[in-house]
C-alpha cells in the first residue's frame, strides 16, 4: 500500500501534455494578431466600421473641425487634426487589435478590432 500514493506514469503524461497545451496557449494568444477593422467614432456622427485591408485616407468631422486619418499596410494613423496638442498624430501608427487612437479635443476616436465590431463595454468591476 506504500506505493499507492506515488506519482504514476499517467500523471507525468498528463503533466507533459498539459504543459505543452499551456505553452501553446501563449503562442496562440500572445502572438499579436493584426487588426482587421477600424471602428471610427466622430462627433455627433454615426459610428462607421471600415476594413484595414484597403489603403485609403478619410476625413472625420469632429467637434472642432475635420480630422484626417490614413490607412496603409493594415495600419492606421491620424495625419491631421484641428486640436492644439496633436497627441493623436504623435501617437503614430496603430495596428494591433484593441488599440485605440483618439483625439479628445476633437471628439474623434478610432478603435481597432480583430474581426468583429466592438462589444458594448470594455470592462466591468465588481
Amino acid at each position: 500500500m506504500d506505493n499507492a500514493y506515488r506519482i504514476k506514469f499517467a500523471d507525468k503524461l498528463v503533466f507533459m501534455v498539459c504543459a505543452c497545451l499551456v505553452g501553446a496557449s501563449y503562442w496562440h494568444l500572445w502572438s499579436d494578431e493584426p487588426a482587421q477593422l477600424a471602428i471610427i467614432k466622430g462627433h455627433q456622427s454615426q459610428t462607421q466600421v471600415i476594413t484595414l485591408h484597403q489603403d485609403t485616407t478619410l476625413s472625420v468631422t469632429g467637434a472642432l473641425g475635420t480630422s484626417s486619418l490614413e490607412i496603409k499596410n493594415r495600419q492606421l494613423r491620424f495625419t491631421d487634426s484641428p486640436c492644439n496638442s496633436k497627441l493623436c498624430i504623435q501617437s503614430g501608427w496603430h495596428q494591433r487589435s484593441g488599440d485605440i487612437a483618439a483625439c479628445l479635443p476633437n471628439r474623434v476616436s478610432v478603435q481597432l478590432a480583430r474581426n468583429d465590431a466592438a462589444r458594448d463595454y470594455d470592462a466591468i468591476n465588481f
Partner: peptide
C-alpha cells in the same frame, strides 16, 4: 491517474 494527474 493518481492525485497529481487528477489535480492538474
Amino acid at each position: 491517474l493518481g492525485a497529481m494527474g487528477l489535480a492538474i
